[in-house]
Design a protein around this nucleic acid. Sequence first.
DNA 1: TATTTTTTGTTGCAAATGCAACAAATTTAG
DNA 2: CTAAATTTGTTGCATTTGCAACAAAAAATA
Lengths: 150, 150
Amino acid sequence: MKEILREIGMIARALDSISNLEFKEYDLTKGQYLYLVRICESPGIIQEKLAEVIKVDRTTAARAIKKLEINGFIKKKDDEHNQKIKKLFPTEKGKNIYPYLKRENDHSNMVALNGFTEEEVENIFNLLQRVRKNVEVDWEFVKKGNKRNY
Amino acid sequence: MKEILREIGMIARALDSISNLEFKEYDLTKGQYLYLVRICESPGIIQEKLAEVIKVDRTTAARAIKKLEINGFIKKKDDEHNQKIKKLFPTEKGKNIYPYLKRENDHSNMVALNGFTEEEVENIFNLLQRVRKNVEVDWEFVKKGNKRNY
DNA sequence: TATTTTTTGTTGCAAATGCAACAAATTTAG
DNA sequence: CTAAATTTGTTGCATTTGCAACAAAAAATA
């Protein structure tokens, strides 16, 4: 059995911890960069959806977002036709640091793919997308309280 | 720029959260399965090394391991020639649940690789190992307090 | 050998994380 | 149209997480 998930876990933890250290400089605390990046790239997204794309617990997302708002990185806006949802948008402050988040992410991508050919990059990206799609089915299943059978 | 790290993060968080939910059944709390699996597979490993292979903060590992010991999953043993280090070993209780951890991990691997050919599995594994090796250099660099330049 | 540096381990503290449990709006089904 | 189910959001609480800061053993250096 090829332990691909172990490799993935190691890579993810290593890079997350690097990002968290590097983004302190912009007053972002642990994990916040994940949300801010997504809100900048998908302005108007709602909290529930954000938790789903990031793959994090609803309540964790709720609190991270609340803190981003308190610290002026994003703002919540009511929807015209649906008074339950709150759309999320970056503020000027949020928009301003986005390029730094992007730059850091690009750098980590480059480091991660050091020594890869163009073709290998294309290849690993496609394979990872397939893994992610496979995995998110189970994640949603389990997160809704269901039990996997194996 | 192919966002491979974003895919990796999503996969890692999704599967970690599934594992944490599934291992509650064995009285393992969040994250503990990571350490227990490694201690079972590398009996005698020390805490510092364990943090390094898992890619987690030293102090986080210290506390997770302490709790595993308190709950009787592992035991610490002094070394003959070095009185600073403490070698980690699974107890009978720890050894007994290892097969369940392995089985869960194997299942998640299967789910993740659903639809993959033998060759694609081999391929993604090798690519991921290379990424991991690239990334751990930076992780150790940054964790030691150094600053990446980019 | 003596002293400096590195390794390994610990604790204090502040913060993030996530399960339960709740509430209200909206959507689905009868 | 009404009632049930789902979606979206929140808070309480217990736990994990990780940076600082410390201590002691061991290893490297002078």
